[in-house]
């Protein structure tokens, strides 16, 4: 599971990067589509989250060069209250270490079409996202 030597405190701020290219966040209406939290076939062990303890919002927004990103801001204790685990996962799939990397194991490639995930995606987007910041340019 996660890195137990670096547990995530309930007060910790978490970031979810949102590519502007997908249209998941509408600046005009301030609506965030739950697709922003939908796992894909590459999310083997959970969707990625960035720990605010180790990165700024701008750092969390960094992605493909030339692209634009928003950042959804969440709080660990809010997720815990909904039964959503946040696991510290500093080891990336390519073997690099990033202390800021964490995952939501309940939303992964194997259960991405389940009712449970459909429910959690909507709760994350509509109830647990405190604000959406950006856009930031990579």
């Amino acid at each position: 599971m996660g890195d137990e030597s670096d547990p995530i405190d309930g007060e910790e701020v978490l970031y979810r990067r949102i590519p502007a290219s997908q249209g998941w966040y509408d600046e005009a209406t301030k609506e965030l589509n739950s697709a922003a939290f939908h796992p894909n076939r590459n999310d083997e062990t959970g969707i990625s989250i960035v720990r605010g303890k180790y990165k700024t919002v701008k750092q969390a927004a960094m992605g493909r060069t030339g692209k634009k990103y928003y950042v959804a801001v969440l709080k660990a204790s809010d997720l815990a209250q909904q039964g959503i685990t946040v696991a510290s996962r500093p080891e990336l799939p390519d073997g690099k270490i990033d202390k800021a990397h964490a995952e939501l194991p309940e939303l992964n490639k194997d259960n991405r079409r389940s009712d449970e995930v459909a429910s959690l995606e909507e709760i994350l987007a509509q109830k647990l996202t405190r604000e959406v910041l950006g856009p930031y340019y990579s």
């Binding site: 249209g23 609506e31 589509n33 697709a35 939908h38 894909n40 076939r41 509509q126």
Partner: peptide, 24 residues
């Protein structure tokens, strides 16, 4: 729909919002 977006996994999501009711 109020919006149509890719789902990031090769699919497409149509969303219709009306107050507290959301249909996808």
């Amino acid at each position: 729909p109020s919006s149509v977006v890719p789902d990031g996994d090769g699919g497409v999501v149509f969303t219709h919002r009306n107050g507290v009711i959301t249909k996808k």
